[in-house]
C-alpha cells in the first residue's frame, strides 16, 4: 500500500509534496506557525504517538469527511491514517510539521479511496444502500421526538450540501465545525494565512446558505 501513496517528507520539512494532487490551495508567506519543538520519536514510542494521535484525530476525521467518496466510511479511512502515523510518524522531526503532514496523508488516503471506488464492482446486498451510502451500519436509533429527528435530518442535509462546496471552501468550513479549532489552527493545518481561512469560511457559509435555499425552492 505504501508504494502507492506519496507521503510528504516527514523530517520537519514544510516542502509541499511533488504530486500535484497534494499541492496546497494557497501558500502565502504569512502562514501562521504553531510553536515548534523538536520531535525525536522512535518506532517504539507508541504511547507518545498515541497521545499526538488523540490530540489530532478529530480534525483528521473532519478532513476525511471533506474529501472522502460517498461510499467510504470515515473510521475506515481514519484507520489508514493511523497506520501511516505508526509506520512513518517517527520520521517527523518537528512538532510543527505534524499537522500539515497529517493533513496531506488524510487527503491522500481519501483520494486513493475515491480512485479505488471508481473501479469497484457493484452488487450490493444491501437494499437500503441508497439510504445508507456509507455502507455502514444503519441508524438503529429508536423513535425520537419529532423535533430531534427533524434536526438530525436537517443537519445531515446541510452536511451533504457542504460537501458540494469547492475544496478550498469545504475544508476550512468542516474543520471549523470541529470543536476547539481556531482560525489560526486551521490555517496551520491547511498551510494558508489565518485571514484567508476567515474569508473562506465566510464565503463558504454564504454559498452554503444559497445552496440550501436553492434546494428548498426547487
Amino acid at each position: 500500500m505504501d508504494d502507492r501513496l506519496n507521503y510528504p517528507q516527514a523530517a520537519g520539512s514544510r516542502r509541499a509534496p511533488d504530486s500535484e494532487e497534494f499541492a496546497p490551495i494557497e501558500r502565502a508567506g504569512d502562514v501562521e506557525d504553531e510553536p515548534s519543538y523538536p520531535l525525536s520519536l522512535t518506532p517504539s514510542d507508541h504511547d507518545e504517538l498515541q497521545k499526538l494521535w488523540e490530540e489530532n484525530r478529530r480534525w483528521v476525521a473532519a478532513l476525511l469527511l471533506a474529501h472522502k467518496p460517498r461510499w467510504a466510511e470515515v473510521d475506515d479511512l481514519l484507520q489508514e491514517v493511523a497506520a501511516t502515523l505508526v509506520s512513518k510518524g517517527h520520521e517527523i522531526r518537528d512538532a510543527g510539521a505534524l499537522k500539515p503532514w497529517l493533513r496531506t496523508v488524510a487527503t491522500n488516503v481519501a483520494r486513493l479511496a475515491a480512485r479505488r471506488g471508481k473501479l469497484r464492482l457493484h452488487g450490493s446486498l444491501d437494499a437500503a444502500e441508497e439510504d445508507n451510502p456509507t455502507g455502514g451500519p444503519a441508524d438503529t436509533t429508536e423513535l425520537r421526538p419529532v423535533q430531534a429527528v427533524t434536526q438530525t435530518e436537517e443537519a445531515s442535509r446541510l452536511l451533504e450540501l457542504a460537501k458540494q462546496l469547492p475544496d478550498g471552501y469545504r475544508e476550512p468550513l468542516l474543520l471549523k465545525s470541529v470543536q476547539g479549532l481556531s482560525y489560526r489552527q486551521i490555517g496551520h493545518i491547511l498551510g494558508i494565512p489565518e485571514t484567508t481561512v476567515e474569508t473562506r469560511i465566510a464565503r463558504a457559509r454564504k454559498q452554503l446558505r444559497e445552496l440550501a435555499e436553492k434546494t428548498v425552492s426547487s
Binding site: 484525530r57 478529530r58 483528521v60 476525521a61 473532519a62 469527511l65 470515515v74 473510521d75 481514519l78 434536526q151 438530525t152 436537517e154 443537519a155 445531515s156 446541510l158 452536511l159 457542504a162 468550513l173 468542516l174 465545525s177 470541529v178 470543536q179 452554503l208
Partner: peptide, 14 residues
C-alpha cells in the same frame, strides 16, 4: 446544524 452533523459523522474518531 453543521457542527452537529460533523460531530456525529466524526464521533467514531474517538
Amino acid at each position: 446544524l453543521l457542527d452537529f452533523a460533523v460531530g456525529r459523522a466524526t464521533a467514531a474518531a474517538d
